[in-house]
Design a protein around this nucleic acid. Structure first.
Length: 253
DNA sequence: AAGCCGCCCAACCGCACCGTG
DNA sequence: GCACGGTGCGGTTGGGCGGCT
């Protein structure tokens, strides 16, 4: 039994992509568009697995990719979103135009983790290391009702870039998620206090189910930020991959 | 100059999810 | 409801490169 492999491994190239392969892939996608990854390699004349083609396109060849170093502003957004979403790299990437999940994941593991540890913050829990150690392992998103995330404290004075220009054109329409804003990210319970037992949501029994349930809680949560002047911004809808009505009680347009 | 070491990042792998028949 | 195929996601790996001794 078992599913068939995604491609015939014996006849596919692996490892680094050549310029010619890149050109073939780009030319094919320009002509036919994305999608049908499984059949794409054959159609494009590539000896590659469809997954490999997709990855190459998404992470490297896409024309809208922003190459280069991450800005302090992007750092802060990543840290805060990680505090909210955990290792949901694709969702974090969705909030950073031009960045890929792979890029962010790598950047997190190589730079931000270290940066947080240097500040005495546990990169997984976003709590001070001493607290995190005492509280034991805890994943972001498991924070209970209105638990303001410790990620707030991650925007330390030395990185809060007071006076920094806020005209960063991130492609995210205003309000911008910049470190000049006192991002007061929080997750609160949705308006309905608890899910009825007849909830259509899947009920699982294992640890994986806990993660799924967590994702549900996050996706149904009302996510808001507040400026230091007290104005609230809704980050639901597309901003965090949430849908209108998924626990959103705000009156955004 | 040569060897070693650590870091970075592109790419791979396995699994989960989703749509369809 | 179930099986299957396609796609997406997150964790991990390993090659290349630069710095250090």
């Amino acid at each position: 039994m078992g599913r068939s492999p995604c491609c015939e491994k014996a006849h596919t190239n692996k490892g680094a992509w050549t310029k010619e392969e890149d050109q073939r892939l780009v030319a094919y996608i320009k002509a036919h568009g994305e999608g049908s990854w499984r059949s794409l390699p054959k159609a494009a004349g590539l000896l590659r697995c469809g997954k490999s083609c997709r990855l190459r396109w998404i992470n490297y060849l896409r024309p809208d990719l922003k190459r280069g170093n991450f800005t302090e502003e992007e750092d802060d957004i990543i840290i805060k979103l990680h505090g909210l979403l955990g290792n949901k790299w694709s969702q974090i990437a969705g909030r950073l135009p031009g960045r890929t999940d792979n890029e962010i994941k790598n950047y997190w593991n190589t730079h931000i983790k270290r940066k947080l540890l240097a500040r005495g913050i546990d990169p997984q829990t976003h709590r001070p290391l001493s607290v995190a150690a005492a509280a034991g392992p805890e994943r972001p998103g498991t924070n209970s009702h209105q638990d303001h995330l410790a990620a707030r404290s991650s925007c330390s004075p030395e990185t809060s870039c007071a006076g920094r220009s806020s005209d960063h054109d991130s492609g995210v329409s205003a309000p911008r998620l910049g470190c000049c804003i006192d991002l007061n990210l929080s997750i609160s319970q949705p308006s309905q206090p608890s899910l009825p037992s007849s909830s259509p949501l899947p009920v699982k029994q294992d640890a994986e189910a806990t993660n799924s349930a967590m994702a549900v809680v996050v996706s149904r949560a009302t996510v808001s930020t507040s400026y230091s002047d007290g104005k609230n911004i809704c980050l639901c809808l597309n901003r965090l991959g949430l849908q209108r009505g998924d626990g959103c009680t705000c009156s955004h347009v």
